[in-house]
Amino acid sequence: MEVGRLPISASQRGKLIRAGYTTLSSLSSLSPSDLARELNVTNSEALEILKVASLNSRLDRTDGGHAIFNGAQTAWDMLHEEQLLRRITTSCADLDNILGGGINCKEVTEIGGVPGIGKTQLGIQLAVNVQIPVDLGGLGGKAVYIDTEGSFMVERALQIAEASVLDMVEYNDLLRKEHRKCQVNLKPNDLLESIYYFRICSYTEQMAVISYLDKFISAHKDVKIVIVDSVTFHFRQDFEDLALRTRLLSGMALKLMNLAKTYNLAVVIFNQVTTKYMEGSFQLALALGDSWSHSCTNRVILYWNGDDRYAFIDKSPSLRSASAPFSVTGKGIRNSASNHKRIKLM
């Protein structure tokens, strides 16, 4: 008998059982005044009993349930949750395809490539696309853009935002044909208003901002993506002590990962490429060294193939390695125009 275990006085317990309340669940939906009438006790006494009962039933559930720690989940629950998560589209269907639908929330995705390949363009595109309303299959969130290189240009962001609004209106018209009505009220300028922009001029500032993000995002819960463009620049300047650099970087990576998990948002960080001496020849590799390569969930490398830009999934726990072409157009990131042999699976 559950009621028998409640830390209340014996007379109260007796009254409860006499009135027919033996289980905690039978008490859960009762109002204090009802209980007071049935047990013939004062209102405050009834309230006290209900408080104790609800406290105990909560403790009960965590003991008896499948979770051992508060907040632990089974893989089944997590899979379920992940299927419900929305992804942030890159506006390039081929790229979305190999990414499993777009950039994932709760994950840190690192994107690297040579200068001029379109890293910043992809960053701006994602900062705009995260704002696509929920009705249109987006996240309807806001973006934090941390610019370390000074490459973010408002006019370009506006161009991409304008193209994105046009696409949304078009898509909305298609939806409306299927009798689902919703209005696109977004204006390109609103899209820019929803990008929180940090300009960073040294690595200390970078560390400070990333530590501050926790506070910032808890005040701005609608932030759904954090973009760091690029994580590398200031860490290639004056580090004589490479061990210190590695410590700072992995600390930063941990913070970013925590942000992604805690606030259910996507973290996208851009990296530069450098040359690495391997097996007698110089190879291209992402900068910041080997230990850094552990700190991201996914790793995407952008590269040139002939005159086309390609993206390649270099590392991912859930995606197969594949490559897909994309192009940078006036409207932003789009499908590659030359559409022969689109996706190559390895």
């Binding site: 973010f152 240009m153 408002v154 006019e155 962001a157 820019l192 990008i195 929180y196 922009y197 940090f198 300009r199 960073i200 500032e205 400070a208 901002v209 530590s211 501050y212 910032f216």
Partner: peptide, 28 residues
């Protein structure tokens, strides 16, 4: 400087002319 101060509204980029309208058009 506190991290809060690093948050700013991105301003439209000012451009400096090269002294020739055709070249300026090419460079936006």
């Amino acid at each position: 400087i506190s991290p809060e101060n690093l948050l700013r509204r991105p301003q439209p980029t000012q451009k400096c002319t090269l002294g020739c309208p055709v070249l300026d058009r090419c460079l936006g």
